[in-house]
């Protein structure tokens, strides 16, 4: 699996350049033209990334989530949900780095082959930084009215988390 995923990018680049060459595209000039467009894209998304990082950092560093979860832990233990997984699931839509950091902590404390470790890995693999992605993509084309995008995206993540829990139980016991 690992070698396959390492081959994808080089093969893709090779194929695109080769194909362009055969189709007699002026590849170098076209590349520069596209790169220039990319630079403009970055210029446009810069403010929305900065704004989101600012707000997310303030929120995460307030440790509000940890406080809520420590209060709710007696209830969670009753439904046999591993407490450690919750902060990760909640942080996941807003910050990939933060949820990876929590997963790393879970691996250190329980091991990657424990139930919580496998559950964390599965959740990390099947969900995405939904809020961050929406802010970035909509921000890049200056759309404010996002309609039902956020709730649908978060619903999918939520279903993914529940499915992960059931699947890890079923497959790994």
């Amino acid at each position: 699996m690992n070698t396959i995923s390492k081959m994808i990018i080089p093969l893709f680049v090779l194929f695109v350049i080769f194909y362009g060459f055969r189709r007699k595209v002026t590849i170098y000039d076209t590349f520069l033209e596209g790169a220039k467009e990319g630079l403009i894209t970055v210029f446009h998304i810069f403010p929305s990334i900065l704004a989101m990082v600012f707000a997310i950092n303030i929120f995460l560093n307030s440790h509000l989530l940890e406080t809520i979860f420590s209060l709710a832990s007696p209830i969670l233990q009753k439904i046999s949900l591993p407490l450690e997984i919750l902060p990760m699931a909640f942080v996941r839509p807003i910050s990939g780095t933060a949820s990876l950091a929590i997963m790393n902590e879970i691996f250190t404390n329980f091991g990657p082959d424990s139930f919580v470790g496998r559950l964390a890995s599965t959740i990390q693999g099947c969900t995405d930084t939904t809020i961050y992605v929406l802010a970035l993509y909509f921000g890049s084309v200056k759309i404010n009215k996002t309609r039902y995008a956020l709730s649908t995206g978060l619903f999918a993540d939520f279903v993914g988390i529940i499915a992960s829990f059931i699947l890890v139980r079923l497959i790994f016991g």
Partner: peptide, 19 residues
Amino acid sequence: LLPIIVLWSGIMKIAEESG
């Protein structure tokens, strides 16, 4: 993000122009 976006925008432009 900057170098990745600029690089891939360039490569994808070739993919676009070549059809």
